[in-house]
Each structure stands twice: as structure tokens, then as C-alpha cells.
Design a protein around this nucleic acid. Structure first.
Lengths: 358, 358
DNA sequence: TTTGTTTATGCAAGCGCTTGCATAATATGA
DNA sequence: TCATATTATGCAAGCGCTTGCATAAACAAA
């Protein structure tokens, strides 16, 4: 009877057992473990020591049921995001994981195929998580209204143009593209091609705005400029650049929405026997992905820098705060510094263009 | 009173409400939804229709508490696996996600820093998941005994040499390396360098065995051969190959444990002005990672092929089966076909070596 | 009609925890 | 010493579901 604890460290070991063993009630033990006030230090310490000793862990299901929270958050994403070869998703995930772990929460992955609304509804009504992170918002994203209606706390990676207040983590995409484009303009480039994602996504739309704003700010007509909507892949960058460089009035510069695109552009430029930074300039936004460093491009790539891993950290932190405090709709707009490297140079025959565009 | 349902689709909508609305008891509704026998078809259909209509989803916490399962599985991994730039982890994860979703389960990510045992114990006693997937087992892996003791169902990606029965998904690493090595030997190579992972990992140990077995099977002495333990990165492949090629008795062939290593070897070979497939042969094991195709190497890479994405699918399927049936310890050893491409050629001056080694 | 079966449904306990309220024990002030 | 404030602890309800057992209703057989 006394020696039955030596064998398996895995006996039931619930609150009840622990309480009995201590000669206390479940309530007292529970409160002691949660450090509720009113439990004398001495008792608390005794309880905690015993809990530690038997490795007591509250049953998450029961606790969740009782307190009405799970201390878990969900990450909802189309399953392809994990399968794509070129995606920043994994980096965001790494950041999220990190914080979730640090804050003693769990991360429930909710990959889906088909309709995201269904998944969100299910997540909300099954109460499996306290909140969710959603990604890649559209300019008008219906998920925001849905989640608000459902009463499921959420934070968005990126923004949308909806009127409802909500939490998000984002960068200033408009300013970023304005900055990159402005840089090229100031170096005398006028025939600039912007490689952007699809305009239905708010970040792409914002970047488009920024792109045009840079011209307007200088009193220039962006007429000869082109803005292309394309997937953010090396392949797409290569194809677009190849096509653009082959045409009449070949561009002297590219602004890229992702480092993969920039890679493709580099390849196209090289293949044409040209040199990045001399014949063709390239400026890019850099998500700071694992293992792809703008500084190691040849030549090193001029880019605005904002590592999405940190976006992930903020997303998780914000969401957990939200589920704990039920307060407002905090958001965070992260900075993105422009780092000048060698991929941007003066426009060839810049003089011919300066001042007069066409 | 009658028009209060039009506003928010998010009213409580628990079992109780549903039952009241139907004029039935919770028990009947519950059983109808779970398709228990004894509920007449007519009732069942009526209940299901109503549930569908109000979008009823059982509260996962409550259900979990009641049935003693969560219908969620955990994936336990050191957080770095997500941060590494060269890792097959994401591909495995994609496979797992896929099946977990298809089988209506949830995936709880359990990244950790520090001691894995602690995480597993916690997961087990908090009952947050019905089972876990663990990865990268050591030759002697303590986690297997621990999990068995804890009574937490699990499946291992890979195998270990422990005596306890357990479930796993693996490939025949020994056979794979024997095959790759044998191929090179049969092409007349004798100065072969094997780039392997660290031997504490069972898969690496098995590959080492296979490597030596190939020599033994042909009555050859592997004396001039080298087997290197190294991280599975492009960089490491490059460094090892560069060093090896620079030395006296430079190898004429490499066997690589990962496609990243092979990449590095290609780079080193090219840098030395040599040509893969003619001056130096390379054979590899290919995990079928997203976006890295052995067939697109230049020259195309000869490799044994077993996509880890499918490993992931099997891992999840096996684990879910296990948690549902509590049956034995099923395992799956997946095939890996050898695909011949141009990276392996006859050994230069093969004649000089054939038959007599060193 | 009465009894025995079968079928349809409901009662209530229980899953393991939290927490409002009550009580018992102890300390404080008169 | 007694009333009163102050701890320290426990009781029991409840979180939303499942499920063994009981009951009621319907039907079949006698």
C-alpha cells in the first residue's frame, strides 16, 4: 500500500488525489496552486512542493471547461501555405511558436481546404481555442466581420479596409513602396517596373499606392512605369523581368515585393548579360526569411527590412493579451528600415531623363 | 422574442438549447448526433437538420472531458526545427496537417526549448492531446520508454534500438545507403566519401551500417573510404567536399545523406573545375522536399527517393488509428526507389582500381 | 385484455477542475 | 471573558457533454 508509488510516475494524480494526500480540500489546493490570495504562504508552499513532487499537471480539458478558456490559440491557414516552396509562412510560424511557448499557451494548427468561414465558425463554437490568428487579409476582408460577430478574439497579420475595429500586426506597406520607388526615382530611374502581389490583398494594394505616390511627390508622371501583379516567386520574377527587359523601352529598375521576386529578377538580368546595380537597379522589400539574406545577393540587395518572424511574435503576444484582458483592439505597425546596398545605382544616361519624363 | 435569432448567429447554441428547441432531452440529441443505435432514423434526421441549421458544434472541452479524449494530437519538436533554413521538418508537417484535417482532428504544436521529457510529461498529464508524434530518435532513445510509462500513445518518425515495442514510420536507411554505395562501387569507385549525419541518431547509424555493408558484400575493404559526420546543410556539404577534393587521394565519389549536402558537393566540385558525373560521382538520398528536385540538379542527381511529406501523412494516420483502437504497435516502413540520373558515372581510370583496392 | 418485447426517450451521475459562499479556527479589542 | 474582526479552509454547484440505467410508449403475442 505504501510502496505503490514507486513504479509508475503516471498514476492518476488528479487534484483530488493530491488534496487527499495533503489532507486538504480540492478548493484549497486549487487556490494554492493558482496563488489566489487568502491562502497562507505556508500552506501554499506545502501544496506547491507536493504538486511539484508528484508532477501534478491540471487536466487541461477540465480546467478549460471550468474557467471557460483553453489557453490555446489557433492559427488558421490554407494548407498550401505549408506546401509552397516559396513562402514566408514558416518564418511567421516560428515567431508565433516561440511566444506561445513562452507564454505557456498552446498552438492549435488549423489548416484548411475549402471555406475558411466554416473553419472559423467551427473553431468559435467548439471553443477549442481562445482566439485565432488569420493571415493575408483582403482589401475588404469578410473574415473580420465574421469573427467579430462570432465573438472570437482574433488578430490579423496585415490590415483590411473594413470599418470595424480589430487587432492587427502590420508594416507600413505604402510607405515602404513609396520609399523604395522614391529611391530609384532619386537615382534618376524613370522606366521602373514594380513587381507586386495581387491587388485584392490589402498589402499589395497599399504598396501600389505607395508606388504611385512616390512619383506624385516628385511631380512626375508615372506613365512609363508599370506595375505588375504576379505571384511572389523566383520564377515569376524571372519571367516578368525577362519579358520586360526584352521589350522596347526596357526598364532600368525594378521594385520587388518579395525577395523571391528579386532573385528571379537577378537571374533574368544576368542571363541578359547585364549587371545589377550598373545596368539595372533592383530594390526590394525583405521579409528576413530564414536562410535568404539580401546582403548575400550578388551584388548585395538594397531592401527595406522587417523580419516576419518578429511579426509572428507580435501576433501571438497581442492575441494572448487580448484573450486575457478582453481589452480594446491593440495593433502594432512595425518599422521597416531601408538598407542601402549595391543593387541600386544611378540610372544609365540619367541626364537624359532628369527633369523630363516620357 | 421570435426575431432575436436573426442578428447574431453566435448565440450560445449548446446542446441544451438545441434539445429544448427540439423538445427532446440532451441525451437523445447527443445520441442522435453521434449516430448511436437505438435512435430512430426520423428523429436522427430531425436532430441533425436542426443542428445543421443553427450551426451547432459541440464544445470540444466538455466533450473531451466526458469522453476522455480530445481528438487532437501533438507534434513535439525543438523550436529550432522551424528556424533552420535547411530542414525537412516543414514537409513532414505538411503531411501531418493534411491527414489530421482529413480525419477531423486537431494538431497541437508543442515546440520546446530545454528538456523534451518535461514537455512530454506535461502533455501526458494535462491530457491535452490523445497522442504525440516524436521525431529524430536516437539509437537509444529515452523518450520511448518514457512515453510508454506515461501511457501516452505515440508514434516515432524513425526508429530506435530499444526493446520496447512502439509505433513508427521509417524508411530502410541501411538498405538505402547500401544501395547508393553499392551503385558507386559497381561503377568502379573506390575512393568514396560518405556524408552522413551524426551517429547518435538511429537513421545515421543505420546508414553507416549500410555503407560498410556494401563493401563487405563485394568482398572489398572500405579502408580508403571515409565516412564523415556532419550537419545536413549545403554549407557542410561544400566544406567537406572541398576539403576532401583538395587532399591526396581525392575521392571520386560522394554518398550524401541529404539533398542539401549534395548541393554543397556540387558547388565544391564545380568550383574545382570538375564535373559531376564525369570526374566526380554523387549519389544521394532525397527526402522529396518542396521546391528542391533532384531531377533539376545539373547534372540531374541520382538518388533514392522517399518524400517525407508522405512520412508525415503516415505518422498522423497511424497515431490517430492508435488513439482510436488502442491496438498493438503498428509501424510502416516506406519504400525508397533508386532513381538513376546523370550524377553517377564510371570511376575515372576505373580499370586501375577494379579488383584491387588501395 | 394481459403479459412480454421491443422501441423511443429521459434521468442523473460523472468527467476534473474552479469559485461563490459558508463555516470553522484563530486573533484582536473591550 | 465575550463579542468581533480576521484568517484558513471546505462545501457544493456548475462548466457542457456523454452514457448506464430506468422508464414510458408502442407493439406483438397469448
Amino acid at each position: 500500500m505504501t510502496k505503490n508509488s514507486q513504479r509508475l510516475p503516471s498514476m492518476p494524480a488528479g487534484l483530488k488525489a493530491l488534496a487527499e494526500q495533503l489532507g486538504l480540500s480540492q478548493s484549497t489546493v486549487s487556490r494554492a496552486l493558482r496563488e489566489h490570495p487568502g491562502i497562507p504562504d505556508k500552506t501554499r508552499r506545502r501544496v506547491m512542493a507536493a504538486a511539484e513532487k508528484v508532477g501534478y499537471q491540471p487536466n487541461a480539458r477540465a480546467r478549460g471547461l471550468a474557467i471557460g478558456r483553453t489557453e490555446a490559440i489557433g492559427l488558421v491557414f490554407p494548407i498550401e501555405r505549408l506546401q509552397l516552396e516559396e513562402t514566408n509562412f514558416v518564418d511567421v510560424l516560428a515567431g508565433i511558436s516561440d511566444v506561445v511557448t513562452r507564454r505557456n499557451h498552446s498552438l492549435l494548427m488549423s489548416p484548411f481546404t475549402g471555406d475558411e468561414g466554416t473553419v472559423l465558425r467551427k473553431l468559435a463554437s467548439s471553443k477549442a481555442v481562445d482566439g485565432v490568428i488569420i493571415t493575408r487579409p483582403l482589401v475588404q476582408d469578410p473574415r473580420i466581420a465574421l469573427l467579430t460577430d462570432l465573438g472570437l478574439p482574433f488578430v490579423v497579420h496585415g490590415r483590411s479596409e473594413v470599418a470595424i475595429p480589430y487587432s492587427f500586426v502590420d508594416i507600413d506597406n505604402e510607405a515602404i513602396f513609396e520609399r523604395l520607388t522614391g529611391l530609384l526615382l532619386d537615382y534618376g530611374h524613370r522606366r521602373i517596373v514594380a513587381l507586386n502581389s495581387f491587388l485584392q490583398f490589402r498589402y499589395a494594394a497599399a504598396r501600389a499606392e505607395g508606388f504611385y505616390k512616390a512619383w506624385a511627390a516628385r511631380g512626375l508622371d508615372p506613365a512609363p512605369a508599370q506595375m505588375l501583379e504576379t505571384p511572389m516567386t523566383e520564377r515569376a520574377g524571372y519571367d516578368c523581368a525577362t519579358r520586360a527587359l526584352a521589350g522596347p523601352d526596357a526598364p532600368t529598375a525594378f521594385v520587388c515585393g518579395s525577395i523571391f521576386l528579386a532573385r528571379g529578377v537577378y537571374r533574368a538580368v544576368a542571363e541578359r548579360g547585364l549587371k545589377v546595380g550598373r545596368d539595372v537597379s533592383v530594390a526590394c522589400h525583405d521579409d528576413g526569411l530564414r536562410g535568404i539574406r539580401a546582403s548575400e545577393f550578388n551584388p548585395p540587395l538594397t531592401a527595406t527590412y522587417s523580419p516576419v518572424r518578429e511579426h509572428g511574435e507580435h501576433l501571438a503576444a497581442l492575441l494572448i493579451d487580448l484573450t486575457e484582458a478582453k481589452a480594446g483592439a491593440p495593433h502594432r505597425i512595425l518599422p521597416a528600415d531601408l538598407i542601402l546596398r549595391e543593387s541600386v545605382g544611378l540610372a544609365p544616361s540619367a541626364a537624359a531623363h532628369t527633369g523630363l519624363n516620357e
